[in-house]
Design a protein around this nucleic acid. Structure first.
Lengths: 157, 157
DNA sequence: GCAATAGTTGACTATTTTGCTGGGTTAAGT
DNA sequence: ACTTAACCCAGCAAAATAGTCAACTATTGC
């Protein structure tokens, strides 16, 4: 399991989708605007998410994307796996005898690590994240406001 | 904390170094040959590892690289951090108000995840890895031999 | 001192991934 | 019909990844 910006984009977009598509489908244009991701890049990502059976596209006016499953049934690991797509992980993609003699020293480490991370991310659902974010988002906003007030006081005091 | 092939290369090389530099320094040429990583790429990686105070270069004949600390005092997270070098992690590198209004939806997730992974990797030392690999390496070799014997039997039986 | 070894440095290239632009086609709603 | 928005490409620019080459310096051993 690789961790790059691409996966983060996908998770961000899915989060946005989960949050806004309760009532009607959400257009990629909207997500692009809210999350400042380019529309075309989103199209690429959603093409893969769709192929992975995570989202469904609805054409025509009033269309957009919807989640195929409940947000509580979608985990982060699957999202990342969907967009990262079949990188053979290293020269030793799954195989054990990856190197001539000594068998790729880090094999066990990376397999173990990968598994650990995957397990961790599989345990987190979109729904959980949404909840968590909602709460903390408010908290952050309050903090920010507080800081701003303090800053203003400093500059004008 | 990002996870890419670069970090894996670095860990692989450090593992090799830890394993072979018990007696005398190890040249990058040797590591390059054993781990099939290009010499120049290794040079780049080791330049950073050296600047991070993890390895020490010894010039002249019989020279090479040595670990600065004991293998049991070097953890994987530090190795990866050393070569990955100051990526500001995303547009919201550490800052909280990464986006105009809604504050980067995935912020909490990625910070939490990063921390989780870092913690995990900080808990693994080169020494531990070496030990683990040594044992499993032998095991794998035995397995392989066994499989080969079976294959031969199949083809010639 | 001289030659060989091996680190050190930097500039330069190639490949891949990433992220994006812009063109189109197709399905659905008004 | 017309609009909307998914779908589908072909390509492109920037960045990251991986590697090459060449010059230089410090160290060891003869």
């Amino acid at each position: 399991m690789r961790l790059t910006t691409k996966g983060r984009y996908a998770v961000t977009a899915m989060l946005d989708l989960a949050f806004h598509s309760q009532i009607k489908p959400v257009t990629l244009t909207d997500i692009a605007a809210r999350q400042t991701i380019s529309l075309s890049y989103l199209e690429q990502l959603f093409a893969r998410l769709r192929r992975a059976g995570m989202v469904k596209g609805v054409r025509g006016p009033g269309g957009g994307y919807k989640l195929c499953k409940k947000a509580s049934d979608i985990n982060i690991a699957d999202i990342i796996a969907a967009v990262d797509e079949a990188l053979d992980s290293t020269k030793c993609g799954g195989e054990v005898n990856c190197q001539k003699d000594q068998a790729c020293l880090t094999h066990d480490l990376w397999m173990g690590l990968s598994e650990q991370i995957r397990t961790y991310l599989k345990g987190i659902t979109l729904a959980e994240l949404l909840e968590k974010n909602h709460v903390q988002d408010v908290a952050q906003r309050q903090d920010q406001n507080a800081h701003q007030v303090i800053e203003i006081h400093r500059h004008h005091g």
